[in-house]
């Protein structure tokens, strides 16, 4: 990896951290306020691609584990990784990776629809597929109960997938990172 790639990885780890500072937004009609951090997961994948996007979230989690209170609400430290909802955290790097993979796959014909597909599969399906069974195993409750408990977050996640897709398409047009001409790669 070039230093530039490392800088992008660090940048998106920082963006996820800054999104944690935004207070949860209450949306009329939704039962649960939306926190912004999974928006960062979706953006990392759909702007940086699979490898760098996944690494950005890995870096973010490493800093959280090392004691930086970067999760929304100022949470951090090792205890959040032992907590009941830790599965959702573990899913973030994988989710960003999957979103990045799909984005790269769709890159030539990337538009709002493809961006939405990538963000919904990676940013919602993958996250729940890991988080829900984790919570069930951890708290000794059934899969169904764990899933029902997480359903209230789905509307918010859909809003975030739309937002991330709109932004990703605009960024691709103005400053595409995934296809940035690899001058140095060619030189070495």
């Amino acid at each position: 990896m070039k230093s530039r790639d490392l800088a992008y990885v660090a940048l998106f780890a920082a963006i996820v951290a800054v999104l944690g500072l935004i207070p949860p937004v209450a949306v009329p009609g939704l039962p649960v306020p939306i926190t912004a951090q999974t928006l960062g997961v979706m953006l990392a994948g759909s702007v940086l691609g699979a490898k760098r996007g996944g690494l950005a979230l890995l870096v973010f989690l490493v800093l959280v584990a090392a004691g930086a209170p970067l999760l929304s609400g100022g949470r951090g430290g090792l205890s959040v990784f032992a907590g009941p909802t830790a599965g959702y955290l573990y899913s973030w790097p994988i989710a960003a990776f999957v979103i990045g993979l799909l984005t790269q796959l769709f890159w030539k014909r990337f538009n709002l629809a493809w961006a939405l597909i990538a963000n919904m599969i990676g940013g919602i399906v993958v996250i729940y597929a890991i988080g829900v069974p984790f919570t069930a195993l951890y708290g000794d409750i059934s899969l169904g109960a764990s899933f029902t408990g997480s359903l209230t977050f789905i509307p918010g996640d859909l809003v975030k997938a739309v937002a991330a897709s709109v932004v990703a398409v605009a960024v691709r047009r103005a400053y595409p990172v995934i296809e940035l001409p690899g001058r140095r790669a060619a030189a070495s």
Binding site: R4, D5, A7, A163, V167, V171, Y175
Partner: peptide
């Protein structure tokens, strides 16, 4: 949402510069 795009482009430029400076 309207502020996200200019913000991302600004910080992506900044990261590119930092990466090139490191190299």
């Amino acid at each position: 949402l309207g502020m996200a795009v200019p913000l991302l482009i600004q910080v992506l430029r900044m990261a590119t510069t930092v990466g090139e400076a490191l190299d």
